[in-house]
Design a protein around this nucleic acid. Structure first.
Lengths: 129, 129, 129, 129
DNA sequence: GTGGTCTAGACCACG
DNA sequence: GTGGTCTAGACCACA
C-alpha cells in the first residue's frame, strides 16, 4: 500500500498518519471506504498493531477517519466550511513556501505557472475517478 | 529579536532554526551578515547555549548559514540554480497544500487568487528593504 | 420509531438503551405500554435481534421496563420517592455540568436563565401529551 | 491524589481523564501548574506508565492540558469563548438531566433551588483559593 | 529526569 | 474478526 522509512526521525505512526491522510485527500481512499484492519496492515508493514492503532486514532482525532469498534475504520466524508482553522494554517504554510521560492530566485510569474500546472493535474486526477 | 514558545511541544532548537530561517528568507538577515553570538543570544532568550549551538549547526547543515571558526556564524548568500533539490521539495509541499485545499472545498480559482495576493504582499515587503 | 448511528463508536445496544430511555422519560412511551417485540424492532432497524435483547435486558436492569415472559416488555411506571440513588446521581451530574460551564466562563446568572428556559420547554412539551 | 476503579467497565485511562478534568475544572489544579510526571503517577496508582500517557494525551487532545517533551505536562489555561461546541453539548446534557428529574417526580421549583444551591457552593469553593 | 515511541503479547466487548 | 485496553519492558531525544 505504501512505504515507511523506519530509520527516519519522524515516528512511524506519524508517517502513517501523513500517508493515509494523503490517500484520503487525493481521493484514493473514498469517503466511507473501509481502511485495512489494524492487524492486517500491521502484518503487511511488519509493524506492531499498537502502532497502527495509534495512527488510526490520531487520524480520527484530526477528523480524517472514524473507527467503529468491532466493525472497522472508515474514511470520514469531508464537510466543507467546517475547517476554517485548518484552512488558515494552510494559507500560512503557503506563504512560507512562496517566501522560500522567492528567496531561491524563482520569479513570481513562474510560481503562478507552477501552481496552475499543479491544479490542472490534481483536477485531472479527480476526474479520473 | 524573536520569540520562542517554551510551552510548545516543538523542541526549542527546532523553533530557533525555523525562526532564523524565516529571517534569512525574508531578507531581514542579509547575506554575509553576522548572526548573534551563541552566548549573547542564549542570555537574551534565557535558554541554554548548547541549544543555540545545536540550532546553528542545523542551519549550517541545511545550507542557510556558514561558520568561521573563531569569528562567528554568517548568513550564506543564496545562489540561484544551486538548490534544485530544495525547489523540488518545495514544489512537492505546494502540491500537498493544494490537494488539501481542494479537499476542503476551496475552488481552484480561489487558490490562484490567494497565491497572487500572497505574492503581492511578499514582493511589496521585499521592495521595502 | 427512532434512528441509530451505526457509524458511532457507541455500541448499538447502548444507543438503543439511551433512545428508549429518552422516549420513556419524555412520556412518549407511556407507563405499562408495550414495547415493540424484539423481532419486529430488529427487522425495522435491520439489526441483530440479540442486540435488541441485550438493550431490553439492560433497560430492565436499570428499572425502566419490565418483562412478562411470553407476553413482552412494558414500560415500568415511575414511583416518585423510590429512586433516591438515581436522583443523587443526577444531582451529581448536574454539579459537574455546572462546574464545567463556570470553567468555560458562563456567568452563574446565565446558567440559571438557561435552566429556566429548558424547564419551560420541557413542561410545555409534557402538557401537550 | 484520587481513586480508580479497576473493575469498572470504563477504561482506566478514561477514568483518569475524567478525574483530572474534574480537578482542572474545579480549579484544584491551577492553570500552568505541572501535573505529576507520568512515571510518578503510574507508580502511585500502580498502573502502567503507558496508560497514564494515554490519558495525558487524551486530555491534551481535549484541550485541558499541554505536554512539553522533556519538561512535563501542564494545565492549559481556559480561554472563554473558544468552546461553543462544548457549551452546546453541556446544554444538551443539562436538558437530559432535567427531563429525568421531572420524570422522577422532582418539582421544577425544586430543580431551580437545587441549581442555585450548587452554584453557591461552587462559587464559594472558587473564592477559597 | 521528562515525555514519547515501539514491541510483544494478552485479554475484552461487540455483532 | 473487529477495534480497544492494558502490561512489561526497552530505547530515544530534549534540556
Amino acid at each position: 500500500m505504501f512505504e515507511l522509512d523506519l530509520r527516519s526521525r519522524a515516528p512511524v505512526y506519524e508517517q502513517l498518519v501523513e500517508k493515509i491522510k494523503e490517500l484520503i485527500i487525493n481521493n484514493v481512499l473514498k469517503p466511507d471506504q473501509q481502511l485495512p484492519a489494524v492487524r492486517v496492515l500491521a502484518s503487511e508493514l511488519t509493524i506492531n498493531p499498537n502502532t497502527i492503532q495509534k495512527a488510526y486514532r490520531e487520524l480520527e482525532h484530526r477528523g480524517y477517519i472514524y473507527s467503529v469498534p468491532g466493525k472497522g475504520s472508515f474514511v470520514k466524508p469531508a464537510v466543507p466550511g467546517t475547517n476554517d482553522a485548518r484552512l488558515q494554517a494552510l494559507e500560512n504554510e503557503l506563504g512560507k513556501i512562496i517566501s522560500e521560492m522567492l528567496y531561491l530566485g524563482v520569479p513570481p510569474q513562474e510560481i503562478i505557472t507552477m501552481l496552475k500546472k499543479l491544479l490542472a493535474k490534481k483536477e485531472g486526477g479527480k476526474l479520473d475517478d
